[in-house]
Amino acid sequence: MKDKVVIITGAASGIGEATALLFGREGAKVVVSDINSEVGEEVVKRIKKSGGTASFFKADVASAAENKALVDFAVKNYGKLDIAVNNAGIGGEANKIGDMSLEGWHRVIDINLHSIFYGMKYQIAAMLKNGQGSIINISSILGSVGFEGSAGYVAAKHAAVGLTRNAAIEYSSQNIRINAVGPAFIDTPLLDQLDEDIKKHLISLHPIGRLGRSNEVAELILWLGSDKASFATGAYYPIDGGYLAR
């Protein structure tokens, strides 16, 4: 990772934060991006404190213009873009399809799906100039199966996998690898709003007997971004404690 330039969205907490810290420790130049400036700047400070190189750029991934500005920032500050981790996302409105609001549907699709298209559109353009690159799109186990009350999330995460595969077909011959990661339920701030009974139920769905940890997902993302994964492209990698094996 030495001197590799990486963009990570949703990098102020959870999987994004763990990934940013890991890439920083491994020598990458990390552009930490999030809508939460205060927390995002703290992640940058932690990377620098450990001897790494990082900067923060506030961006709303649901905006095409802000995705472009994020890529432009990385290239202007570090000269190129080698790796992009499209991680930002939300759980979205929890309702059955017939009860879901139109606003709730559009919001989760904007943030969890349109953001990946916008991100790749500008990331790929920068990587083509660089002659190589690796993009990792964060999907979910729900990019493979359904989950009651999460229609928007499930639809977006399924679509993210399809979009990843299509992009890989289009650009792998130009030395840009594109993969998707499918975490199961990870113990992040996103789950803090759940009561203990629901958390226990979620744990029971994982044969390994616990929720995942952000750093475990970060290690897979790091591998996919590295040259060690040079033949890995167009694939969907669940990291799920056995969830999908049932």
Results as ranks from 00 to 15, higher is better:
residue 2 K to I: 14
residue 2 K to A: 12
residue 5 V to M: 06
residue 5 V to D: 04
residue 5 V to C: 06
residue 5 V to Q: 06
residue 6 V to S: 14
residue 7 I to S: 09
residue 11 A to R: 01
residue 12 A to S: 15
residue 13 S to C: 10
residue 15 I to L: 14
residue 23 F to S: 05
residue 26 E to V: 01
residue 27 G to Q: 07
residue 30 V to F: 09
residue 33 S to N: 03
residue 38 E to C: 00
residue 39 V to Y: 01
residue 42 E to V: 04
residue 44 V to H: 00
residue 46 R to Y: 07
residue 48 K to P: 03
residue 49 K to L: 12
residue 50 S to F: 07
residue 52 G to C: 08
residue 55 S to N: 09
residue 55 S to G: 07
residue 60 D to V: 03
residue 61 V to T: 13
residue 61 V to M: 14
residue 62 A to G: 15
residue 62 A to M: 04
residue 63 S to N: 07
residue 65 A to Q: 15
residue 67 N to C: 15
residue 69 A to Y: 01
residue 70 L to E: 00
residue 70 L to W: 02
residue 71 V to I: 12
residue 72 D to S: 06
residue 74 A to P: 05
residue 76 K to C: 06
residue 77 N to F: 09
residue 79 G to S: 12
residue 90 I to M: 12
residue 92 G to L: 02
residue 92 G to R: 06
residue 92 G to F: 02
residue 92 G to Y: 06
residue 93 E to R: 09
residue 93 E to V: 04
residue 95 N to C: 14
residue 96 K to N: 14
residue 98 G to W: 10
residue 99 D to P: 01
residue 109 I to C: 05
residue 110 D to E: 12
residue 112 N to W: 00
residue 113 L to W: 03
residue 114 H to Y: 13
residue 115 S to D: 03
residue 117 F to H: 08
residue 121 K to C: 05
residue 121 K to T: 11
residue 121 K to W: 02
residue 124 I to C: 09
residue 124 I to G: 04
residue 125 A to W: 00
residue 126 A to W: 01
residue 126 A to F: 02
residue 128 L to V: 01
residue 131 G to R: 07
residue 132 Q to C: 10
residue 134 S to M: 03
residue 138 I to H: 00
residue 150 S to A: 15
residue 150 S to G: 08
residue 151 A to N: 05
residue 153 Y to A: 09
residue 153 Y to H: 13
residue 155 A to W: 08
residue 157 K to G: 08
residue 166 N to Q: 15
residue 167 A to W: 04
residue 168 A to D: 00
residue 170 E to D: 15
residue 171 Y to I: 10
residue 172 S to C: 13
residue 177 R to K: 14
residue 181 V to S: 08
residue 183 P to D: 07
residue 188 T to H: 05
residue 191 L to S: 11
residue 191 L to I: 05
residue 194 L to G: 01
residue 194 L to T: 00
residue 195 D to A: 04
residue 196 E to P: 05
residue 199 K to E: 00
residue 199 K to N: 03
residue 200 K to C: 00
residue 201 H to Y: 15
residue 204 S to G: 15
residue 205 L to H: 01
residue 206 H to M: 13
residue 206 H to S: 11
residue 207 P to C: 09
residue 208 I to N: 12
residue 211 L to M: 10
residue 211 L to K: 12
residue 218 A to K: 10
residue 223 W to N: 09
residue 224 L to M: 08
residue 227 D to K: 14
residue 232 A to W: 09
residue 232 A to Q: 13
residue 234 G to K: 02
residue 238 P to S: 10
residue 239 I to R: 04
residue 243 Y to T: 00
residue 243 Y to E: 06
residue 244 L to G: 12
